[in-house]
Simulated scan of single mutants.
Amino acid sequence: MTATTPPRQVTALVTGANQGIGREIAAQLAGLGMTVLLGARDPRRGEEAAAALRSAAGAEVHPIWLDVTDPASVTAAAKHVEEQFGVLDVLVNNAGILGDPAAQSAGTARLEVVREVFETNVFGVISVTTAMIPLLLRSPAGRVVNVTSGLGSLALMADPQGFFARRPASVAYVPSKTALNSLTVQYAKELRPHGILVNAADPGLCATNFTRDVPGLTRTAAEGAAVAVRLATLGADGPTGGCFGEEGPIPW
């Protein structure tokens, strides 16, 4: 009788996952049987979120301190993943900040606010992804998902008849998501030969703390998270270098 090798545990890291859509992404990936590292800037909140998910579903969810704007934190997180698991199969770059909306108007923007937003939403993604690529390359089916926003679509933002035409102009958050979309294409091009698929996920407008200034939202964080989870679990023939929402591709 030939012994069979037990299936290898799939490991996923989700940044900014102690609340909102990030937490729902972590929960849904864990529900699929993955070991999930719940990244959080605040260790206490990360521990509380991970414990709650484990208690609710008996899931393999572990907190990991990860401040995407702190190089020492990013390096420590990558070392932890390597030492504990040796490989990373899924990276979801979810951490993001809105910044002070009042300081983002085109004519009165404060550069310190713009820099702060880009530090998390763009430079933080570069920092984390760079640190995790060596571990993703060890995976037989590495996946990277960047959580973006429809606001980052130049095509949608430029449509005078579209929904986003009614949103206030922003020179920080909105351009940061456009830059994130461009990064997605660049990473997809770099990693395609290695079988790693890289895509951007637009969760859509969901009722979370992030969108508390938008009235009447009924779409849940769990519904928004499902978009990222689908991209995190694509088969080998799946797309790469695209932006996708609930109903399919979104124009750049």
Rank of each mutant, 00 (worst) to 15 (best):
A95M: 07
P7S: 13
L29A: 02
A76H: 08
I21D: 04
L111Q: 08
T218N: 02
R166G: 14
G22N: 06
E112L: 06
C243I: 15
P203N: 07
A102F: 01
V74R: 06
F85Q: 12
R41M: 06
E112I: 08
Y187E: 03
G150N: 01
V36I: 03
T75F: 00
I97H: 07
A78H: 03
T178L: 09
N18I: 09
A109Q: 01
T15S: 12
D89I: 04
G86R: 07
P168M: 09
G124I: 04
L88K: 13
R166F: 03
I64T: 10
E112F: 09
R166V: 03
V14C: 08
Q28V: 05
C206G: 06
G22T: 04
S149A: 14
L91R: 09
D42A: 08
Q84R: 15
R143I: 02
T120H: 05
G99I: 11
T184P: 04
A26Q: 03
V10L: 09
P168K: 11
S176G: 05
R230M: 08
I196H: 10
N18S: 15
V117E: 01
I126S: 01
W65F: 06
G242W: 00
A155H: 02
A158T: 12
I126C: 04
G124F: 02
L154E: 04
R41H: 12
P140N: 11
I250E: 01
V14K: 11
S139H: 11
R138M: 04
D202S: 13
C243M: 15
D159Y: 03
I126L: 15
G99V: 11
N181Q: 07
A57Y: 02
E47V: 15
N121K: 09
V147E: 06
P160F: 09
H194G: 01
R192S: 14
W252I: 10
A232L: 01
K189A: 15
V36Q: 06
S176K: 05
E83H: 13
G107A: 12
R54L: 04
R230P: 00
D213G: 01
V113I: 13
E82N: 12
P101F: 05
A106D: 01
G235Y: 12
L37P: 02
G162F: 05
A26P: 12
